[in-house]
Nucleic acid binder design. Structure first.
Length: 202
DNA sequence: GGGCCGATTGTT
DNA sequence: ACAATCGGCCCG
């Protein structure tokens, strides 16, 4: 029996509206904290957990895959918000993003950690929950998808901290990483050279 | 077609 | 500090 607060399956079915995603990417990145990511495996098993670490990537951001324009890989980022962008990296990991902004404007939020075992890190999350490029483009606003987002936000704004993004060689100074304060799934300071988290402005 | 490098992770 | 491991993308 899994531990954690009890939640009715019906709560997982309450999805977020398109308007939530059709907004400024940095705003969505901040507000995705606490939102529940739900994964239904092929055998019917349902996994879920709150998002606790995100990063924003925008079209005018040199670190964004869409910075140099639309390519087959990043094309979903140019579609409307609310869909998954999954890419393969370093020859061994997949990373899950939530597409943002209106159609024709690229933007996405990298999901870096979930409040569930073995999901502390974008590569580990996808490995643990069997998320790969076959999920690129899936509708995250549809509880019938193999992957979707549900309401039941559990993070108050005063628990949101902001810092610089991890693992970049360019645009390292943008304060576009959002984390839930003191959450064990969020890597603290550590060996990565990123700024100390500061309380985010509401 | 070639070559370089990456929104990572775990080990040395 | 660095290896693992390979697809995407830029250049020619």
């Amino acid at each position: 029996m899994a531990t954690g607060r009890k939640i009715k399956i019906s709560e997982y079915l309450e999805t977020l509206p398109p308007e939530f995603f059709l907004r400024d990417t940095v705003t969505v990145a901040r507000e995705l904290l606490g939102v529940t990511l739900v994964r239904r495996l092929e055998d019917g098993t349902v996994l879920s957990g709150p998002i606790v670490e995100t990063e924003a990537y925008t079209q005018d951001d040199p670190a964004c895959h869409a910075f140099r324009g639309k390519t087959p890989r990043c094309s979903v980022m140019f579609g409307p918000g609310g869909f998954a962008y999954v890419y393969f990296i370093y020859g061994m990991y997949n990373c899950l993003n939530v597409v943002t902004e209106a159609e024709h404007t690229a933007g996405a939020v990298l999901i870096r950690a979930i409040g569930a075992e073995g999901t502390n890190g974008p590569g580990k999350l996808c490995r643990e929950w069997s998320i790969d490029r076959s999920h690129n483009g899936v509708n995250l606003m549809d509880a019938g998808s193999p992957l979707w987002l549900s309401k039941s936000s559990s993070t108050s704004s005063e628990d949101v901290e902001v810092s610089t993004r991890i693992g970049l060689s360019v645009a390292q100074d943008r304060p576009w990483r959002f984390t839930v304060r003191n959450h064990p799934s969020v890597s603290v300071g550590g060996s990565k050279r990123n700024s100390k988290p500061r309380v985010a402005n509401s």
